[in-house]
């Protein structure tokens, strides 16, 4: 097998338990969906890290570009009023 024939690159997301969000944990190479799933199980869940796995082909992820950073993200820096910190929360309200 040649070095450049490792298969497709997949991104792996794990859910620690039902109801919780999936988090990105890493990536792997595999030739097909089934192989990607078994490899994800063997690589990333050996120590009980997850109860659910999502796989996405890396090439299918639409990503922002670091060079767009200034135009994309900097304008929000000076708009503190967008944070909901100017309201007083009644004492009885919890989990906010």
């Amino acid at each position: 097998m040649s070095e450049d024939n490792q298969g497709i690159l997949w991104e792996v997301f794990l859910q620690p338990k039902p109801g919780r969000p999936f988090k990105h944990v890493g990536s792997l190479h595999a030739y097909d969906k089934k192989m990607a799933m078994t490899s994800a199980r063997d690589l990333y869940t050996r120590r009980g890290e997850g109860k659910g796995i999502w796989l996405v082909k890396s090439q299918d992820i639409v990503s922002s570009h670091p060079e767009d950073g200034e135009a994309f993200f900097d304008p929000s820096n000076d708009k503190v009023y967008r944070h909901p910190t100017f309201y007083s929360i009644p004492d009885g309200v919890k989990h906010i």
């Binding site: 063997d42 690589l43 050996r46």
Partner: peptide, 12 residues
């Protein structure tokens, strides 16, 4: 094994 992922999987 042919690649890292399989190496870990089969050793498991």
């Amino acid at each position: 094994a042919p690649h890292l992922e399989e190496d870990l999987a089969i050793t498991n």
